[in-house]
């Protein structure tokens, strides 16, 4: 077993090849980073349909502006920042549209919490973990949701996508994790960790 490579490194390599003319490398890059972008967009409070649109728009913009991105190592941060910025714009539009509910009718409105189907898919320890995570602040939930997608070498890039100063991601994440560990530690039924 080789050690898993960091998202940032793997993305940088694919993006460098893409910039160098191997255009098909955009495909593995999309597949590699979409889960992270998805959880980032959803963590920003976007509905599922809006999250899909925002992610698609972000990729289209990346391809259009690819030549201007000097450092391929920055591609994950670039995409993440773009998703977050676009998410804010869409969220603002939705707030203005809020009185006009009719425009939302065909959009599958879905809460970020698990529905009955998802709960069935969870095992016992996941249900417990979810119960404790859902009691954290929304900010902590969004941070853990995104930061858990990558390993330590990715934290700097992920913190940028979250809009957290790189220097404070450690303490911020640490506080969220500490709150979660504390909750798990006082749960007599929690035994997984």
């Amino acid at each position: 077993m080789s050690t898993p490579r960091s998202l940032v490194d793997e993305a940088a390599e694919l993006f460098r090849e893409f910039q160098g003319g191997k255009r098909s490398q955009i495909e593995p890059l999309v597949r590699l980073l979409n889960p992270t972008l998805w959880h980032l967009a959803r963590g920003c409070g976007l509905e599922r349909a809006d999250a899909e649109d925002v992610i698609q728009t972000t990729w289209l913009t990346l391809v259009k502006k690819a030549e201007g991105i000097r450092d391929p190592q920055a591609v994950l941060a670039w995409l993440g920042i773009s998703v977050r910025r676009e998410a804010w714009r869409v969220a603002g539009e939705r707030r203005r549209e809020a009185p006009r509910q009719d425009a939302e009718v065909l959009v599958q409105v879905q809460d970020t919490g698990p529905g009955p189907d998802e709960t069935v898919l969870m095992d016992e320890s996941q249900r417990q973990l979810w119960m404790h995570i859902s009691r954290l602040t929304p900010r902590c939930q969004a941070i853990l949701r995104v930061v858990s997608r990558g390993g330590p070498p990715d934290y700097a890039a992920l913190s940028e996508t979250l809009g957290i100063p790189v220097g404070s991601i450690g303490p911020t994440r640490g506080r969220c994790l500490a709150a979660l560990r504390q909750a798990l530690a006082t749960d007599p039924t929690w035994s997984t960790l």
Partner: peptide, 28 residues
């Protein structure tokens, strides 16, 4: 602050569980 654990001490197992959980709760 005791919560300021260095990156190396992060509980990788817990982070993996969180990532897996969100893929069940709200998959792309």
């Amino acid at each position: 602050n005791a919560a300021d654990s260095p990156l190396e001490n992060l509980d990788a197992g817990l982070m993996d569980s969180i990532a897996a959980l969100y893929d069940v709760v709200d998959p792309p």
